[in-house]
Design a protein around this nucleic acid. Structure first.
Lengths: 192, 192, 192, 192
DNA sequence: GATGAATGAGATTTCATTCAT
DNA sequence: CATGAATGAAATCTCATTCAT
């Protein structure tokens, strides 16, 4: 048996790290960061507690890695909706939003939950705040170029609507009429 | 030298209980339920830990009392906005919403934060879910009677907008243009 | 309203004290000394905690008073069985024993339970020890005078039988054949 | 540098668990269950408080484990006294009883003490009750086959005598004439 | 690299006792 | 005399983190 090559080891590390993050995200989202113990995470990930500390310095470090990871995912998503036509881009954004809402439910839940615990995780609050302002800018630009009236106010509205829909969907679960909402939003904002 | 009157004791108890709930709400909202220790609460309330347990059976009982308290407050608020004219009532609701959002910021934060920890506080999730559906019904009724087009969809929208505005205001803090949003909402939904 | 006379006050005190002791005995016997709280006692006795401390210096003092009280009761009982004829006296003792076992069940339970917690209540252990040796002496004397063979050994046996019956009766409750045991004991030891 | 083997860990766990149970039994028997703190146990066992909770879920769980353990021991003992000749078997039982009484004094003390706290540890009371009835059956059978008169009553008597001797020995300690009692019992019940 | 036994700081909770009224 | 609100010491229990193997 020849020793594993260096790349293999790296790959194993990366895969394992991703697996831990996945398990942690699920638990954090379901029972909350504080109530999730390192033991639960390592059990669910089928590794030892000691090994987990080989990958992450602390529980807080694990959370930060998770957030950064999620952040990167989102940036990737946003880069895929760019389009020269503001109406098309708006439609892309709306579609992508509803898609990610369903697919990455845990992620949304976790970020939302953590956002409300300011003093402990100020950086998350800051991150979320930055994001919101960025989106408002973007929406205002797109709506202005779409020649929609009251573009500034409607951009604010649209931002609130996104967050509100996410909130309600995460609370009401299955019964929420996501598709109707999507169609109505597209009709309202992308048919000029 | 006569023993304290029964009424006096009742009064003392009520005042203390209310005070503890106030302190707890503030801490829970700021640093989260799990991260808020009984010691911190009793310190801030300037009472001993032991006394706190004279008033509440457990930390969880304290939280539940708080939720029920907040629930009652909200019901009181909703009873004050009733009006025969749907347009007037809608305006009342919008005004009341923005008022409570500023005045009871901590309450909103706490409820929002707890709502995202399903497995631990399922009853809160259930409560919030009930509330949302109730508001949707109410909005649909008011918008229909106001002869606004797509009343059903717009009711959903309005519900989402309220929650979204709350979310963003709680995250962005002072910089959020609450008043502009209020005026715009009234203009959009109460000028038929 | 004339002030209550001194004797009345004394009488009230004594009655109240007796009542507290009664309640305490019942609770101590049922759930144990350590698990019985002062609050439970005062609640059940329908007085305030403060007042209880007016009558007893501490929880331990309450227990000691109880033990001494029980001790006095027993001494009273023993003085009533004295008889010149050893056979008659033995019969009296056996009868009295079975009577007190049923009537003062709680007392027996408490004493038995406490007897097994040496280090905390050494004085009880000492008391019980004294009692046992005293009874052995008495039994040996009575059996010798009754001209029963192996009086010394049978006296030991009889002592053990009393304690054993008490033990089993307290554990098995209602189903224990107390009366049969009594008759058999009398037949065995009082028919020479 | 290889990780500890699974078997090693198992062995460590078992040894530690047994050690903790031993220490706990000793303390429970000496100062009582309630008055024995987890700190005292862990100190005496020379481990941290935390580790104790790695092995037992709670103080009550520790007690239950202990009881079950003791129960198993007793069953083992009883299986070793079986004999076809009722007289031999009776003698075996008597001998075994006096042996365990001295060797497992703590066990007897603990069980006896707990038996008297009905409401808190009902399962112990039930267990003890079961045991007693079983022994009565067994004694009756053995005495009948030994053709001893009044076998039923004498079986009851014998059961009471065992418990009574245990009670007195545990209270009087060293001065109790155990050996005389044993010899006398054997003479009385095993010489037909 | 991998394990999970072990630690220790700190959390929640209990309760005998005191004391202002 | 009488009350029960209030205290504080100490109990039970939890869990992130370390470390011997």
């Amino acid at each position: 048996m020849s020793p594993r090559k260096k790349e293999d080891n790296e790959a194993i590390r990366e895969r394992r790290k991703a697996h831990i993050l996945e398990v942690a995200l699920n638990l954090f989202a379901r029972v909350g960061y504080e109530s999730t113990t390192i033991s639960k995470i390592s059990n669910e990930a089928k590794i030892s507690k000691g090994l987990l500390y080989n990958y992450f310095d602390s529980k807080e470090d694990l959370l930060k890695s998770l957030i950064l990871d999620l952040n990167k995912m989102e940036e990737g998503m946003m880069s895929s909706v760019i389009d020269d036509d503001p109406q098309v881009m708006l439609r892309n954004i709306i579609t992508a939003f509803f898609k990610t809402l369903v697919e990455d439910k845990d992620k949304w839940k976790l970020i939302s939950a953590l956002t409300f615990q300011v003093e402990k995780f100020e950086f998350i609050q800051d991150l979320a705040s930055q994001k919101m302002l960025g989106y408002h800018q973007l929406f205002e630009d797109l709506l202005t170029r779409s020649e929609i009236e009251n573009a500034k106010e409607e951009a604010q509205m649209l931002g609130a609507i996104f967050d509100g829909i996410a909130f309600q969907y995460l609370v009401i679960h299955g019964e929420y009429p996501l598709n109707q909402m999507k169609d109505y939003l597209i009709k309202k904002y992308c048919s000029n």
